[in-house]
Design a protein around this nucleic acid. Structure first.
Length: 323
DNA sequence: AAAGACACCAACCGCCCAACC
DNA sequence: TGGTTGGGCGGTTGGTGTCTT
């Protein structure tokens, strides 16, 4: 690892974290805070490198993590931001409270990328695929996303064919089909050129979902954020649902089936206009990312919600008792 | 029922950069 | 001023679960 000589000298564990390791790290950080990561493993009694501890904390143990499914706003937000900043996941994550760059990156690669391609949009350029396809064919481009998926693409000049979902895994396509059904050529263009939040769309979207199971998990996650992102049925490395099925793309539904459906859905995005406007890294983005949230009622402040929680409460530490 | 294919995601790797000495 | 260290980031990999054949 070159400069990170510590990792070579010390016997460091690799691979998945055990519940005991999680507990040690969690207890240490919540008690003493994040100082020098390189000293954390020793002080916390872990045989991990500091870098690994940092990653584990940031991507998994951190109390303010939202976890669970991405809401439609979050999806739109990611697409919109990616259009502007590209693969700068950290920048995108900074605008999505409770989400990590790694999480967003994975979600993009496993879900959004394909969704965009299905919509006839090149995920790299955010332009219609038909144009790029021609260019790529001419230049023999070996881009992974395009080259792998391109052979399956229908003729994008035929709008009727665009409506046909590709032959993805029948279960996993579940959400995507619902989305695709909603997306006429016009609406799809709107999605790209101007993000539009459509509650009805979401309502229909959810109508196909078993109200129990995956969904309940997410519901608890968002509205009952008292447990810092650890839900009561937390298991090591997994956020399980009542049906015992771990989260997957299949369960990426909007947030609530309660009477507060839309409200919690709105707030679940955890995005506020003032937060966006504070983003000085790329001012040109601001104008782009404001419109999806116009008119959105944000009754809860995700950040505040989290800040009000006590990270050292027994409830939070209780998560490890379930492991 | 079993094997292969596929999808997801946690974690690792390597590079970059800023801070420190 | 140059070397070292630590943190951050994006790309990639490998394990695991699920689906298809």
């Amino acid at each position: 690892m070159g400069r990170h000589s510590v990792f070579v000298k010390e016997k460091t564990r690799k691979g998945l974290w055990s519940p005991e390791e999680d507990e040690k790290l969690y207890n240490y950080i919540t008690r003493f805070g994040v100082g020098c990561w390189s000293s954390v493993p020793k002080l916390a009694g872990l045989q991990r490198c500091g870098k690994s501890c940092r990653l584990r904390w940031i991507n998994y143990l951190r109390p303010d993590l939202k976890r669970g499914m991405f809401s439609q706003e979050e999806e739109d937000m990611i697409v919109t931001l990616h259009k502007v900043v590209g693969n700068r996941w950290a920048q995108i994550a900074a605008k999505l409270p409770g989400r990590t760059d790694n999480e967003i990156k994975n979600f993009w690669n496993s879900n959004l990328k394909k969704k965009l391609i299905k919509q006839g949009i090149d995920p790299n350029t955010h332009k219609p695929l038909s144009e790029n396809y021609q260019v790529r064919n001419e230049t023999n481009c070996t881009d992974k996303a395009s080259s792998l998926l391109m052979p399956k693409l229908p003729n994008m000049s035929n709008s009727a064919e665009i409506e046909q979902p590709f032959h993805f895994n029948s279960k996993r396509i579940f959400n995507s089909e619902a989305i695709t059904r909603q997306l006429t050529e016009v609406s799809r263009n709107q999605l790209v050129s101007k993000q539009v939040f459509d509650p009805l769309f979401l309502y229909e979207f959810q109508a196909n979902v078993n109200p129990i199971g995956h969904y309940v998990h997410h519901h608890n996650q968002i509205e009952g954020n008292q447990d810092f992102g650890f839900c009561s049925n937390f298991q090591h490395g997994q956020m399980t649902t009542e049906s015992g099925i771990s989260d997957s793309s299949t369960s990426r539904m909007s947030t609530s089936n309660s009477s507060n459906t839309m409200i919690s859905h709105y707030s679940s995005a955890g995005i506020q206009m003032n937060e966006m406007l504070e983003w000085d890294a790329d001012n040109k983005i601001d104008s782009l990312i404001q419109y999806p949230y116009v008119g959105i009622k944000n009754e809860e402040n995700f950040s505040n919600n989290n800040n009000n929680n006590n990270p050292l409460s027994g409830e939070n530490l209780d998560v490890f008792h379930h492991i």
